[in-house]
Design a protein around this nucleic acid. Structure first.
Lengths: 211, 211
DNA sequence: CCATCGGTGTTAGTAGCTAACATCGGCACC
DNA sequence: GGTGCCGATGTTAGCTACTAACACCGATGG
């Protein structure tokens, strides 16, 4: 009952991993991604991953709750909620999500792309991974919505704005992951997607009709 | 090789079910939903569903490819793509998706809600079902994007517009499914969500800032 | 009256995932 | 410098979702 930080989201205080544990985790993830890329996700068994990493399959599940999680683990999510909450409360919920997400992605280093690109490519062609990715997104959305609501946005607006922005980004990313190689960087893809949701731009396009 | 209709999406022509088969399928679905609601999705085994329906577990899998599919089967999806394609090509991609989806939902009968509400409620509290629902959405999005692109919208616009509208609707629905009982109808929820994405409304809200 | 065929059951197997318990190796503390 | 604790891992056994192969049964039609 003596929680020290408010950022705790319900998990029972995962103590920091030892060096050894961190190395085992990294080895498992690297080996798994390599196998997934080379022979496909469904065609790779957990047993194979564990053997290639020199551990037993139980050790794999001690580090990753599911086979999917090793491919969709994403460290960006908390940053997004933070960036959204940092937007001025005077803006609409939609603009706060849109600009917050855009800022966070524009600030992200463009070098992480290599491994991340492989992961997104895998997702775009593996239904089970797409499903998990969306489910991850769900938690991200919950956090963003909370951030919006606790800083004054009406709940209905927060829900719709978050769903729209996150949905647009995810769909754009999956489309990006399925494309052939001459393509923009991941960050550019996200920023471009969010720019296309600029209300000014949307309204300009909408007004080309009569009335 | 002798396909008769163009609406075939790649599946090998599923012949219409016999009466007996349709009854078995309906019985399985009804029994499954009942068990899911009463004792939870994870806590219900396929064996239990099959037994309660008076068949073997193999018969269950002949009708539903996964345990999740019996809870997330959704007949609305094809209608959406149709409604989007029916929007005038002079509109922006975003407005075509937004209005198409809105029209389709506004036209849907408000009576289907009972069983559908149960299904969405289940989704909102079962991670595995949410994941499947999102994955279903993926196919819907693909169809909508195709419809937009083949009728003149730039691909990037189509992808972002579809992701935003579908994401907003899904998020709103899951939020709706998690709410307590005094709540609007499912159709009203969707229409309200899409109205909140009206570019005019977004811009009005955005302009309350300086510049 | 028999052949066919759709719907179903039986059996056996694979893979993801979990629980219980044993083991091994390093680190702290005396 | 022993010694005991504890974290990381292994072993084993088991459950559940899901699949393949094949046998059966009942209706329908020639």
């Amino acid at each position: 009952m003596e929680q020290t930080l408010a950022t705790n989201t319900g998990a029972p205080a995962p103590r920091p991993e030892s060096d050894r544990a961190a190395r085992t985790r990294a080895r498992l993830q690297a080996v798994a991604l390599d196998l997934f890329v080379r022979q496909g996700f469904e065609e790779t068994t957990v047993e194979q991953i564990a053997a290639a990493a020199g551990v037993s399959h139980m050790t794999f599940f001690r580090y990753f709750p599911t086979k999917e999680s090793v491919a969709v683990e994403d460290p960006y999510d908390p940053l997004l909620a933070e960036a959204v909450a940092a937007q001025p409360a005077s803006l609409s919920a939609f603009e706060r999500v849109r600009r917050g997400t855009r800022d966070a992605m524009a600030a992200a280093p463009p070098s992480v792309d290599l491994e991340t690109a492989a992961r997104i490519g895998l997702m775009s062609l593996t239904p089970a991974l797409r499903a998990r990715a969306w489910e991850n997104t769900n938690e991200t959305q919950r956090v963003i919505i909370d951030a919006l609501v606790t800083t004054g946005s009406p709940r209905a607006d927060a829900v719709v704005a978050t769903g729209a922005c996150v949905g647009a980004v995810m769909t754009a990313l999956l489309d990006w992951g399925a494309q052939a190689d001459p393509r923009p960087s991941l960050g550019e893809c996200v920023v471009d997607a969010l720019d296309r949701l600029d209300p000014r731009r949307l309204l300009a396009a909408a007004e080309e009709e009569t009335s």
